[in-house]
Write a protein that binds this DNA or RNA. Structure first.
Lengths: 153, 153
DNA sequence: GTGTCTGCAAAGTCTTTGCACCATA
DNA sequence: TATGGTGCAAAGACTTTGCAGACAC
């Protein structure tokens, strides 16, 4: 079971409670930190662990965890949101290649040093110029994977 | 009226037709190239120009133009898609600061030279490494704008 | 003239909300 | 035990689809 003390503490500070359901959902996410879970996938797995868990709670929990910065929400253009744990993840800072043909998503961590340096400078300057408190950023490349590029009509 | 010959030609090549409705929608988008139109906003304006235009056609047209690469579709996390013309736009290559408090979106074009250089190298290397044909990329920063940061509860 | 496009309405998909009951701190 | 959390079902928001008639090439 997922028992990260940092998250628990974080919730207490906010007057929130660490419930069974929330632990199960965190557990599901932490078992495959590299996966891009849809709400439905999380629901299915969590529901297998505890069949009383409902869809609404999954959405409410994902929303809460996103607000707390524990997970990050993504949109890859297929109409449903995706979620990834932000910690306990070996490839924590990474970005995505999204195939617009089949929806395949590839994580990449290449060039993160240069990117990190550029992004830090950019964040700092944008924060000052636009009086904006930046929390995080996403970079996504869209295109066609090898399979879809070959069988292109 | 929007009469870009490049787009017209592009459609002909694909066996598509440049209809009144499509021209009106392109016209709406080209009048405010810096705006992040929702489908509803486009529908309302287009409908004012020609009240026979329906919502379904707006969605179908936006989908078509996105596939052709004439417009780009964005998701800023508020549950509805946004669209921007990719050409005839003075600030064509730009990225977004998204306020997670109020949904405000700021375009920025700063650091595009360094970013462009890094992105080009990254695209090239990723294409080779992952056998991926990259079409475009997005960078989005999420955070709080000045107003939302001040009145933070 | 023929194959594409359109409007309308209906259906589909993902997500949120209301409310009574339950459980954590 | 006081507040926050949960499950269920229903509603809500955005987007897609089927079909008959209309239109561009």
């Amino acid at each position: 079971m997922f028992g990260n003390p940092w998250i628990h503490k974080r919730m207490m500070q906010e007057g929130l409670r660490m419930t069974q359901t929330r632990m199960i959902i965190l557990d599901v996410l932490s078992k495959r930190p590299e996966h891009h879970f849809s709400a439905e996938e999380i629901f299915i797995i969590a529901h297998r662990i505890n069949p009383t868990i409902g869809f609404a709670t999954v959405y409410r929990t994902l929303d809460l965890l996103t607000r707390l910065g524990v997970i990050q929400k993504f949109d890859f253009g297929d109409g449903k949101a995706r979620y990834e744990l932000m910690m306990g993840n070996k490839i924590s800072h990474h970005h995505h290649l999204v195939c617009t043909g089949c929806g395949k998503i590839i994580d990449y961590t290449d060039f993160t040093d240069e990117e990190k340096e550029l992004m830090e400078r950019t964040e700092k300057a944008l924060s000052e110029k636009y009086k904006f408190k930046i929390k995080n950023h996403i970079i996504q490349f869209y295109g066609l994977c090898n399979d879809c590029n070959v069988e292109r009509r």
